[in-house]
């Protein structure tokens, strides 16, 4: 028994270390959530609409500056154009069906926070956080995927150090924008004017 004890102990310690590493690495949202790209009921391409055609994000996600939710548009928004355009396009069949029958389209949610977390889009847009910061360059996505881990630690990284993630309000939906040389100065002014101080208390998101 005594002869094997060091070996057993070694295996044990290695085992525990491996299990910890296993969950730390493969259990983190960076692994489990980033890259999530579910199949949607409609083959809607953001690359075509928001990228090539240059539609602004807020044309469809219209309530994002007033509400905590960035709303998915109703079928009516799609039909604004597609009553006349793409009449023969088979990709639009589910949309037309929804419009005709009155049954809504059941989109699959991609960027999702747990139910016990409160996230307010309007507050973030007001603070100058661009869409790309959390959602990635959606204008280049044929199928929407999650590009950021959206974990609490990742959120706190920005909350503790927001300056590099803020931009002028006119550039919120601009995926090509890069901070100009005087960005630091702009941020200082911007934060003072708009009273931006991202909360680090639990009560900000956990209610």
């Amino acid at each position: 028994m005594n002869r094997f004890l060091p070996a057993i102990a070694g295996v044990f310690i290695f085992g525990i270390a491996f299990i910890v590493f296993f969950f730390w690495y493969w259990g983190s949202p960076k692994f489990t959530d980033v890259g999530y790209r579910p199949v949607q009921p409609v083959k809607y391409s953001h690359r075509l609409h928001a990228g090539d055609l240059g539609m602004d994000c807020r044309y469809c996600h219209s309530q994002v500056e007033q509400s905590r939710h960035a709303n998915i548009p109703p079928t009516q928004t799609c039909m604004n154009c597609h009553k006349q355009i793409g009449l023969d396009n088979p990709n639009l069949l589910p949309v037309r069906e929804s419009w005709d029958t009155g049954k809504p389209i059941e989109w699959v949610r991609v960027d999702k926070l747990p139910d016990y977390v409160y996230f307010n889009h309007a507050a973030h847009l007001r603070a100058g956080v661009g869409c790309i910061e959390c959602h990635g360059n959606v204008r280049q996505m044929d199928v929407v995927e999650q590009v950021k881990p959206l974990s609490m630690g990742w959120c706190l990284d920005c909350h503790r150090n927001p300056d590099t993630h803020l931009r002028p309000l006119s550039e919120l939906t601009n995926m090509e924008w890069t901070p100009p040389p005087d960005h630091a100065e702009f941020v200082k002014r911007f934060k003072a004017e708009r009273n931006i101080n991202p909360p680090e208390d639990c009560s900000a998101c956990h209610r």
């Binding site: 489990t32 959530d33 999530y36 579910p38 709303n71 998915i72 548009p73 109703p74 079928t75 009516q76 929804s98 419009w99 009155g102 049954k103 809504p104 389209i105 059941e106 989109w107 699959v108 949610r109 999702k112």
Partner: peptide, 12 residues
């Protein structure tokens, strides 16, 4: 991962 649906209106 559980699939969550977002179901908007047809006519909002």
């Amino acid at each position: 991962r559980p699939v969550e649906k977002i179901v908007p209106f047809v006519k909002a």
